[in-house]
């Protein structure tokens, strides 16, 4: 069990890579479908022929009819997965506020994501969001810059700002009569802009905004957009407040090394048992823990601070008579 949990982070990267690469592959599949629908292979330009040949070579072993490739369409903002329509809860919330009406056929498409969020918390942010893929790579770049001696992304802001952004965005949606989150929400921006760039040509204003958020993360605060600004993160945090699956520190095997605090990109405090509603269950702290003190548990609340880890200096100074070799883990 323990060894499996340590590999969850790799599984998460696999999931993120699959989602991100799908966002790039799907526009090409759409292009291929339009070429096939036109029945005019000879009239294509050399570039279009290359795209058509490549996609055909990649998909023909699995799918014979190009129309069947329509089973997976769209992006993480809203899409179709083998006939199942899924939408981001933020899209649904924004649409309810913008149109001031309930369109139930659309609202039920967010049902499965909401249930998953109620169970697992901000799991969308850590495991699916295509922006997280780029933000985490961007965070590695910031770590290199910090290693090189540049004092970048050290600032800490108030994490309640994102809830204000959520409320203000909803009010602006009502006022201006458009779903405003579509243009500030990085996963929506990325899905759309990749499609624009590949299938239609040219980026929109969202690409500029996304680059600005990357710069913000790199220079001002670590993962600042997700932690402090993202309205979707705010919604998922609220939904996942009483999530059932959460990470728990086993105080008997913790040695107070604080690697978990360093690796947590959301700036949470696993060492003090402080996960809170912002934890996205990314399991990076589980993967980095040298004594396997962190694991998943089923509970609606975090435990209160359990004191220093029993393998750490503080605890052993206070309890010199305890034989730590009994509690240590091989």
């Amino acid at each position: 069990m323990k060894s499996f949990l340590r590999h969850l982070n790799k599984l998460r990267w696999l999931s993120l890579s699959i989602v991100f690469s799908m966002l790039i592959i799907l526009p090409f599949i759409h292009l291929y479908q339009t070429y096939e629908a036109a029945h005019a292979y000879d009239l294509l330009t050399p570039t279009e022929k290359t795209i058509s040949d490549t996609v055909e070579a990649l998909t023909s072993p699995f799918v014979k009819d190009p129309d069947e490739l329509s089973a997976v369409k769209g992006n993480t903002w809203s899409g179709t997965l083998f006939g199942l329509k899924l939408s981001d809860p933020l899209a649904v919330l924004g649409q309810i506020f913008a149109s001031m009406s309930f369109y139930w056929a659309f609202i039920v498409t967010a049902l499965i994501p909401v249930v998953i969020t109620l169970l697992f918390g901000r799991v969308y942010c850590g495991w699916i969001c295509p922006a997280t893929f780029i933000y985490e790579l961007n965070d590695n770049l910031a770590a290199w810059l910090r290693k090189a001696g540049l004092p970048v992304s050290r600032r800490k802001l108030d994490r309640r700002i994102k809830y204000i952004v959520l409320v203000v965005g909803l009010l602006l949606s009502v006022y201006f009569g458009a779903v405003m989150f579509g243009s500030v929400y990085p996963p929506a921006i990325i899905g759309r802009e990749i499609y624009y760039a590949i299938a239609l040509g040219g980026f929109g204003a969202g690409a500029v905004f996304f680059l600005l958020t990357l710069f913000f993360d790199l220079m001002v605060t670590r993962r600042g957009f997700c932690r402090y600004v993202c309205p979707g993160g705010a919604l998922y945090s609220l939904l996942g407040r009483y999530r059932l699956f959460r990470i728990k520190r086993d105080v008997a095997t913790c040695n107070d090394c604080a690697k978990c605090n360093v690796v947590c990109q959301f700036g949470l405090d696993p060492l003090q048992d402080d996960f809170g509603m912002e934890c996205n269950n990314c399991s990076a702290c589980i993967a980095v823990c040298p004594t396997d003190a962190l694991s998943f548990t089923v509970s609606t609340h975090d435990v209160a601070f359990q004191g220093p880890g029993h393998l750490g200096h503080k605890y052993r100074k206070a309890h010199p008579d305890v034989n730590t070799s009994e509690t240590s883990v091989q």
Binding site: K73, G74, N75, W77, S78, G79, T80, S87, A91, G94, Q95, A98, S99, M100, Y103, G177, A178, V179, G182, S183, A188, G191, R192, Y195
Partner: peptide, 9 residues
């Protein structure tokens, strides 16, 4: 504009 969420489907 009020109803469309801009998903591009």
């Amino acid at each position: 504009a009020r109803a469309c969420i801009g998903c591009g489907l």
